[in-house]
Amino acid sequence: MNKYERIYKELRKQFSDEEIVERYVIPEDLSDQEKKEIEEEFRKLRLKSLKERTEEQRLLSELMRMKLLMKDYFERSGFEEELSFSNQLEQYIKILGRSKKDFAGEIDLHPTKLSRLLSGRENPNVELVYRLENHCGNVIPAIYWWRLHSRKLEEEIKTDEKKRKIESKKVKNNLKFRA
């Protein structure tokens, strides 16, 4: 008896097929020739499906990729320029294949404001991240767009010594504790 079949038979003494599917993916025992035939047949079907991919499927794939890479970023620490709000917004517009002017109209923004957001001269607000969430068909949640912005903000708060000094001069009667 082949190795996977033997293990399957062992498991079958203890569990139903439904329970096995809930806990295992067990490959089929195949000869090299069988494997080759299956792979060849599959390859043809796969290449055909790649050719027939629709624009909607392309968009979904690109947006899911973008979302999951953002998610990975949130699980790391620190700020990464490539994943700043402005760079990701630029990337989003590229994926859509729209002009910036058309995109600005679709999310009810003045083109100049969009341009300022893309250059990082202006920060997003809560209203904008809700609009982006809705625009991308809820694939990328509003909170993800906001976190991209807040990561940069955190970095600035940590590293902007100049502003820290300027603002500390404006504080009076600050609390003092012995070291």
Binding site: E5, V25, P27, F42, R46, R53, Q57, M64, R65, D72
Partner: peptide
């Protein structure tokens, strides 16, 4: 999805 495969995942389970 992250590798640009459109989320394509295959498997070859036991026929039954």
């Amino acid at each position: 999805f992250k590798r640009g495969y459109g989320g394509f995942v295959s498997l070859l389970p036991k026929t039954k």
